[in-house]
């Protein structure tokens, strides 16, 4: 059933694409779509996302857009497009169209990109063939190389990427600690010397008066 729905989606999409490219009239396209979708999934309410509450009010009164090709054509959303697992897997994969986005973000943001929906279908197909998420990600990596992963996989040389900032932090703390200790050590001699003269002793009262005046003038 799952597989059928998926093929149905593709067929509709193909029809939609044909339409968008200024192809035949929509009736024809719909026929083709229906033909390719034995169960008529794309039209049946069960294939809709579960989020949908009300049933279609009137199925055939659907308005046609005055200028349909001014808007990207999209296939109807299926429940699996919103699946948390699918989203999570796609969040780890980079769209190969050169957009620098992950597959989920690209397919839900750049509606002109044909690559990310294709990769999305690939993810769904692999889920259908009972692969685990790890296997799916690994399969993408085998197919496109490491660059398809949004973050370098944690193995081998790539550990350097993850570890270096914290090595930097450690080294930094060590250096700052050492420097501070040296500065503090350089201190005591003067400290002791300072402790001895209590204020006012050995200092002319006149001078202290003057210091008081200076202080009052000084705002800091």
């Amino acid at each position: 059933m799952r597989a059928v729905r998926w093929y149905g989606g593709t067929a509709v999409r193909a029809a939609v694409l044909a339409l968008a490219l200024g192809g035949r009239a929509d009736a024809q396209a719909r026929e083709r779509a229906d033909a390719a979708t034995p169960s008529g999934v794309s039209q049946s309410p069960t294939a809709r996302p579960p989020a949908r509450l009300t049933a279609p009010s009137s199925t055939d009164s659907l308005g046609r857009l005055y200028a349909p090709n001014m808007v990207q054509s999209r296939a109807p959303v299926t429940a699996r497009d919103n699946d948390a697992l699918v989203k999570a897997i796609e969040g780890k994969l980079r769209c190969t169209c050169g957009c620098n986005l992950d597959v989920f973000t690209c397919r839900t943001t750049d509606f002109s990109c044909a690559t990310s929906p294709a990769m999305h279908r690939q993810v769904l197909a692999r889920l259908d063939s009972a692969m685990t998420p790890q296997q799916i990600v690994a399969a993408f990596e085998a197919q496109y190389g490491q660059a398809v992963l949004m973050a370098p996989p944690k193995r081998g040389f790539n550990w350097a990427a993850y570890i270096m900032p914290f090595v930097g932090l450690g080294v930094g703390i060590a250096i700052v600690g050492l420097v501070m200790r040296r500065w503090i050590r350089a201190r005591p001699a003067t400290l002791i010397e300072v402790e001895t003269p209590p204020p006012g002793v050995g200092v002319a009262g006149q001078e202290l008066e003057r210091l008081k005046r200076e202080l009052e003038r000084f705002e800091a």
């Binding site: 003269p197 200092v203 200076e214």
Partner: peptide, 15 residues
């Protein structure tokens, strides 16, 4: 008190 003693000395020297 301790710091005041110290900086008073320093301030007077600086003055």
């Amino acid at each position: 008190e301790r710091l005041r003693a110290k900086y008073t000395t320093e301030a007077l020297e600086a003055l």
